[in-house]
Design a protein around this nucleic acid. Structure first.
Lengths: 193, 193, 193, 193
DNA sequence: GATGAATGAGTCTTCATTCAT
DNA sequence: GATGAATGAAGACTCATTCAT
């Protein structure tokens, strides 16, 4: 019966849960797995979280909030729209890379019966930020007059795909710079960079 | 008690399994769910598949093979590299859209203890095809001299993200044309289309 | 994996459940106890009943129905009101004695969160029958003009107490005849029997 | 961290336990519930009672003792046997009504693995008192010559049923007077009251 | 071939009890 | 005295798998 402070235990649990959930998904993770990873008893888990769902939700909420905070800043720091988009992309990707656990964002195996409101809000927020950047670029004459909504969906999908690759297939990871470059300039020749 | 031919039963099971797995994930799907969707008995499932894993593996293998077949053709049908890439993208996306279940490809909730070899091979194949198209475009002077490996990873990530969106958030879906356009031309002004 | 017919298994479970619930109460009974008493696996229980509550409810419903049926007949078979009451009492007590499990009727340990509607209806029905008998006895001049409602409550309480004694303290059981006698004649001397 | 005297804490716990046990039964009551009702820590409970069972036993023992004390007096206060019986009944019922928690006496959900000796002794004592009253009434010529043992069992059952009704179904409660009246005079006409 | 009753290990969750502070 | 974090066994329920029919 190791006596730890409440906060210490809670953070041990959170870290363990992030690790185990991200490796095995929601359904594939048992409370026992989390407990043993956190070096705590099964019952101990329920001292800090009402149930498995609550634990999971806490996790993704935290991850979302952190990413949203960083990414929002990106927009404000930038001089031009190109720069804003590049910053957005690299913030997003670097945060995801560091917090491999962010993959949770994309968790999909439990039918989204819960937590979907959190997730949807997050996705909407992200897409709005991208749309804002692109719209501004078009208005300022920096970007060509593309379909804003479609384009931001595509960009968002690159990032989503990146995160999924973090778990599925680490070799698939690319650098933020190359990504910005492709999105800004495209593949075809004849664009003055 | 229905007397069906073996193949008929097997295909009923496969279709049911695709539907149910794609909606609920691997862990979220029970053999009973598959059986009842296939209008067959639980025991009947084990007449055609050794176990749940075997059934799942059969499924993704088939889905992969079909997509690979279609996508490979894309390359051969095309006149230019741009066209090849556009065809690849639209084949990929349209197939995925039609076979919503393809999302299985990306399924991640069961620790990848099995089936990972199949998946990895599939991913590698896909990326090789894209790399081939890009390389050819550069060689022929059609594309600018980008980093082939990185670029194809990014393109692959868009597609992967698209598939994930199929389940997660249908609003996020974009059109293949817009996607090809962005990838080919980029966002910045000043490219003659 | 003994193969029994569905009905056979279900009745084995019901009998086991009656026995175990009546001995240990709702909370004090585990599904494992019922399963092992029924010589069936734990999972087997859930083939026939959705959950513990469902099993319990089925039981008390059946017990109530049987008792109500028997007791209703009592009234119709009797010639006089005295006889009707005596028959009611002996039917009630004998049925309860035979189905020791009837005690479930009185189960109280789970806060009555469920099943209370069934129980209440049963109690109301029983009391109505007694009231009917007493009222008729008064009308016909057979009984003295007592407070019908109060009196039937008291009689009902004797029966309820009898059933509780079945579990708590078998020595406390009395004969239906003596009970009828006391209720009809009272303790005081000077009544011509 | 409240500094209370030991006796103060102990009585707070007892009161809380009476309340909670009587509402939820033995198995339905958790130590945490008692602790929080008593505004004490979980660990604090174990400072005064060895375990849950000990706490429960202390409770029913106290409740029994109180009732026995009151009811014993009844006998001594009375002039006649009729009066003694009436007093016994009203003391019993009124005490029970006031201490709704007395229902614990009848608690049945925990297999009676423990506490049964206490309970049995209590029941035996009560019945002996009733038997004594009846016997005396017969000897003195006040009561008719009924079967003493059977009759006292029946009377005891009315009281037991009354207590059970306290929880199960408050509408079923009757007045002590009516009860005494029925038991003394019976239902049939022709008795001079 | 096909059925579906049966199994039992495994899942989430609760709770009496202990003990470092 | 008092606290409350920690434990682990036990409970309700699920599900992949088997097998008698």
């Amino acid at each position: 019966m190791n006596k730890r402070s409440a906060t210490e235990s809670k953070s041990k649990i959170i870290n363990a849960a992030i690790k185990v959930f991200s490796e095995n998904g929601y359904k594939g993770t048992s409370m026992r797995m989390i407990a043993s990873t956190a070096s705590i008893s099964v019952g101990g888990l329920y001292l800090y979280f009402a149930n498995k769902e609550d634990l999971y939700l806490t996790l993704i909420k935290e991850a979302y909030d952190e990413l949203t905070r960083k990414v929002t800043n990106a927009r404000n720091e930038a001089g031009s729209s190109s720069e804003a988009l590049s910053l957005f992309i690299s913030h997003y990707i670097n945060t995801a890379r560091k917090n491999r656990e962010l993959i949770l964002i994309q968790g999909r195996e439990h039918k989204f019966a819960f937590g979907m409101d959190i997730k949807r809000k997050f996705f909407r927020d992200q897409k709005n930020i991208i749309e804002g950047i692109i719209q501004q670029g078009i208005t300022s004459g920096e970007f060509s007059g593309c379909n804003v909504k479609e384009t931001s969906k595509i960009i968002f999908c690159v990032l989503r795909g990146f995160i999924l690759s973090l778990i599925v297939e680490p070799d698939a990871l690319f650098s933020p710079e190359e990504c910005s470059n492709l999105i800004l300039n495209g593949l075809l020749k004849g664009k003055q960079k």
